[in-house]
Computed example of a mutant assay.
Amino acid sequence: MSEQTVITPSTFDESEDPRPVRIQYGDVKMRLPRLDDSTQLPLAMISAGIMIVSKGWNNLTQEEKLNFMGVILAYLIREYPLLEVEMDRKSGDKLKDIGLIINAWAKAGHTDPKA
């Protein structure tokens, strides 16, 4: 029988704000982690992000883009349940608005000075 490999989880750096990205959609104010901060993102979002990075957004099929948006939306609604109510109440084009939120989140949480 082989030996078990024990892996100790990495530590958090508690000196930084874990949710520095602030976005407001209608009346819902969101504080979100940077998209490049894996310490604060759930694994489902990291997995979806890896697919985007590996293929590139423009190379994804429409189904892959919608699946990615679904993962992001599920996270946002879990963290901010009132977002669903706000979108149902105010959005004329929900897919467009989800895209605008994701785009704003990506831009606000962008930390690569080369891009």
Rank of each mutant, 00 (worst) to 15 (best):
K90S: 15
E86Y: 05
D37Q: 10
P81W: 08
Q40D: 09
G26T: 03
D17A: 00
M30K: 11
I77A: 04
A48D: 01
S38V: 14
H110S: 07
I102E: 08
F68C: 08
G49N: 02
V28E: 06
I50V: 11
R89E: 08
S91Y: 05
A44I: 03
R78Q: 01
R22I: 15
Q40W: 01
A48N: 02
W105P: 01
L100F: 12
L73C: 08
L43P: 04
R34H: 13
L32H: 04
L66E: 08
K65R: 15
A108S: 14
W105M: 07
T11C: 02
T5F: 12
S10F: 08
L76Y: 03
R31M: 14
G99A: 13
R89M: 05
G99S: 15
R78E: 08
P113C: 05
K90G: 03
S91H: 05
G92D: 14
E84G: 10
V53F: 01
K65H: 06
K96C: 02
I23C: 08
E63K: 11
L41N: 00
G26K: 05
I23L: 13
Q40N: 14
K114V: 04
G70I: 06
S47D: 13
D13H: 02
S38F: 11
A48S: 02
E84P: 00
P18I: 02
Y25F: 11
L66A: 14
I102N: 10
K94S: 04
D27E: 15
T8D: 07
K94L: 09
A104V: 10
W105I: 07
A44M: 01
W105H: 07
E14F: 07
P33A: 15
K90W: 00
E79L: 07
D27K: 12
S10I: 11
R19N: 13
L43R: 12
V53C: 01
V28S: 08
R22L: 12
M1L: 14
I77S: 01
A106L: 12
D17M: 00
T39Q: 10
R34E: 05
G70R: 10
I7E: 09
N58H: 09
I98K: 07
I102V: 14
S15Q: 14
S38P: 00
K96I: 01
I98D: 04
G49Y: 00
D88C: 11
E63G: 09
E84F: 11
R22W: 04
I46T: 04
G99Y: 09
D93V: 03
A74P: 00
E63L: 12
L41G: 02
S15D: 11
E86G: 03
S2C: 05
T5A: 12
F68H: 11
S47T: 15
K29C: 13
K90L: 14
E14Q: 06
A48V: 03
L43V: 12
A106W: 05
W105E: 03
K65Y: 03
K94W: 07
Y25A: 04
G92Q: 09
E16P: 00
D17K: 04
V6H: 12
S54M: 09
A44Y: 01
L43S: 09
S91T: 06
G92N: 13
R19P: 04
L35H: 02
D97H: 07
K65V: 08
F12H: 09
P20D: 02
Q4K: 15
V53W: 01
D36R: 13
T8L: 12
D37S: 15
S91C: 06
E3Y: 11
G99V: 08
